[in-house]
Structure formats: structure tokens, C-alpha cells
Amino acid sequence: MNILVVDDEAVIRNGIERTIRVNFPQHQVYTAASPEEAVELLRQKAIDLVLTDVLMPGMTGLELIEFSQRSHSHIRWVVISAHSEFAYAQEALRLGAKDYLLKPIGKEILIGKLQALCDEISEEAAQENERTKEARLLAGNLRFLREAVVARWASDLDLGGIDLKPFIGNYPHFHLLLLCMESDSDLRLEHFIIENVMSELIETEGKGFVASVDAKSLLGLVTLQEEEGLGRLISQLRTHLKRYLKIPFQILHTDRITDVESVPEQVRRMRKSSESQVFDHYSSGGEKAVEVAMQYIQANLGSELTLEKVASVVFLNPVYFSQLFKQKTGNGFKESITQLRLERAMELLVKSELKIGEISERVGYPDVRHFSQIFRKKTGCTPSEYRLKEAAAMGKS
């Protein structure tokens, strides 16, 4: 039997692993220090029992159970936690966990619980016939094969003579959903979340499946019970993902497709569209991020202000920051920088006696000639002409 221990605290994780190895040497023990590692092990190994912490970075143990139920329904779960709140225990049991153990876990309690679960799993395995085991294994392997075939199909790559009929023959017409993520970090956990949420929602509106296309995108295929269901599906998907994901994402979709040959072109169109579509920001922090960025820009107008540099100040990916900035301010990043620099230059031209070259440097233009060209293009006059005009206007008043 394969047992997985998931806990971000090394002392707890290693202690449980050691107890299992000493008292149950016949079983294989795997450990994961994070939900990302747990998801990868669940995909790679035939895990029978999981002991998981509740509170971990990235995903809670309860969310791990919830998202794993679709593809790993046979697994037994035990939740371990330093929190005794009834709500945690109640939710764990609702999700099908076999028990809720409090840290620090007594060795005898852990051994007793594991023995009971091992006996239960062994008894069930004895009752499960060989055909059922093979069917479960085949279903899992077919899912990975379908994912590989669909990824190549969507990218218009050679399928090596593979017939698509076994994979999409039951879908005479369908819509495609392309979900793109924007992040430079490891996205295995996000893939896991999206695949499970989208699959669940597809089943509520019809039938279909989800496949990973590449590191940053997944493709969903859905045959709807009614065409109005597409809007509901996308709306619910966006709502769920804003709750669970911590990165920007986009959801794109096609119209109803009946011609299988058109799929690669349809995917290309969605990818092209994604280049100009604003990402959904995953939290209300978007407003604050742009506010902080604007404060930084105002304080550093005389310095080099690249998109990458300012995005790093607010810990956002440059592509996402650029879209968020335009969404919140109504102007592009470069356009806003230029406008702010010129406004500061106008202020200095009127309120100071600094030379044009000094003002140019103070607002971030080391080349005074370049500064004068931009100033004239935006205002219709040179910096010197602007100063004289404003001085004359003030003199008259």
C-alpha cells in the first residue's frame, strides 16, 4: 500500500514518516512538503492513503481533498492539524476524510488509526476483482494519452497517424475554452485546480473534458445541453478561479464547432486574441498595486523607469502589470510616464529658474534635444517658448 504524508513542517512530516516505516515496513511511504509536491505525487504514484495538514502555503489540506476527489476518488484521507476548530473538522468529514487528528499526534493514536485504515483498504482490495483494477488503471492511462493527443492536436502538430475518433467521437459539436495563466512560477498546482474546477463545471452544463496544452494554458472541450449554458459555465469558472488562484488568468472561448479540422485554427485565434485581452486580476490588490506604482513613478521621474523595473517594485509580472496599469488608469505605461514627466517639466519651467538642460535631466531626459522634441510634440511649443508664454500670462494677471 502507498501512503502519502503532506505537511510543510519538516519535524511533523519526518516524524510521521518514521513512525509508519518502523511500524508498517510492508507499506511504501512518500512525503510532500507542499501541495505542489503532493499533486505531483498523486499524479505519478498509485496512492491509497493520504495524511495531510490543514494550513499550508498555496492550498489548504481541505482544498487538496476537494480537488482530488474527481481523479482520485478511491483514496482515504486523514486530516492533521494544530487547530481544533469544529468548522475545520466538520468540513473535513463532509469531504470524506476518515478522521481529524490534532497535533502533536500521539504515536499510539497514529498507529491505531493507520492500522484500522490499512485493514479497511486491504479488505476492499481483496474484494475488488482484477478486471476492476485494470479498468481503473486503464482509465487513468487513457486520460494522460488523451491529454497528450489533444495538446498536439490543438497546436496543429503531427499526430503520427493517431485516430481522433476515440477521443472526440462522442462530441459531434462542441465549444472550446482556452484558459491562459500569466506567471513565471511553477504552475503545476494551478493546473491541478483549473483542471478539476473546469471539469466539474463542464459536467453541470453538458459533457466534455479538460487537457493541459502547455505550461501556461489548458483547453476545455464541452458539448452543452443548451447553448445558454456557455455563459453560465464561463461566469462560474471565473468566480471559482478568482477565489482559488493567486495569479492572473484569462478565459477565452469559441463559438459552436462542428468541423474538427478547424480546431487548430480556432485555438490560434484564441491565442491571438489573448494578446490584447486584459487578464483577470486574482484579488482586490490590483488597485493598491497601481497606486504604489504611481507613487514610485512620481518619486523617481528623473530616473530610468522601465516597465520591468516598476512591475518588480509591486511584485507583479510585467505583462500582467502593463494590462492592469492600463485597466486602472486608462492609459498605457509609457504614455503615462511621458505625461507625468511633461507635467513636472511644465511646473519647473514656471516655478523655477532652472536651465532647460537641468529641467530635462530632472524629469528623466538626459538628452535635452530629445526632451525638447517630445515637449514640442505634446504641447505645440518648445520648453523656452512655453516658459516665456507662461511668464507673459502671469505678468498680465
Rank of each mutant, 00 (worst) to 15 (best):
K107C: 01
L114I: 10
V29Y: 05
D99S: 11
A87P: 13
R256Q: 11
A89S: 15
A393F: 11
L93G: 01
L93P: 00
S352A: 03
S185K: 13
G357A: 15
E195S: 14
L348E: 12
G332C: 02
L177T: 09
F24W: 07
R238C: 09
L64T: 04
I3P: 07
V6D: 04
V22H: 07
R376Y: 07
V368R: 12
Y244G: 00
G357I: 00
R238Y: 00
Q298I: 07
L340H: 06
T19S: 09
L252A: 08
L142D: 11
V260K: 12
R376E: 13
E361A: 15
N300D: 03
E361N: 14
L55D: 04
S303K: 14
A311S: 15
L324Q: 11
Q250K: 11
F86H: 06
V222A: 09
A148K: 13
R238D: 12
D367F: 09
H191W: 09
L340R: 15
L142N: 14
V210L: 02
A135N: 04
S322K: 15
E308C: 05
F144Q: 13
Y171H: 08
V22G: 01
R387A: 06
V22S: 03
K107T: 12
F325L: 08
L138F: 13
E353Q: 07
T239M: 03
W77E: 11
S262Y: 03
K378P: 02
D367S: 15
I109D: 07
E228R: 15
M56Q: 10
H281N: 14
R21W: 02
E195R: 11
K272T: 08
G286W: 01
A299F: 03
D255M: 09
E308D: 15
R152C: 11
R21T: 04
F86W: 00
E261A: 13
I121S: 01
L230N: 06
Q44E: 15
S283G: 15
V263C: 02
E358S: 11
S199Q: 08
T338Y: 00
A148T: 08
L179Y: 01
K272S: 14
G332K: 02
T223G: 06
R131Y: 09
L348Y: 03
L55T: 14
I20S: 02
F24R: 14
L354C: 04
I234C: 10
F209K: 12
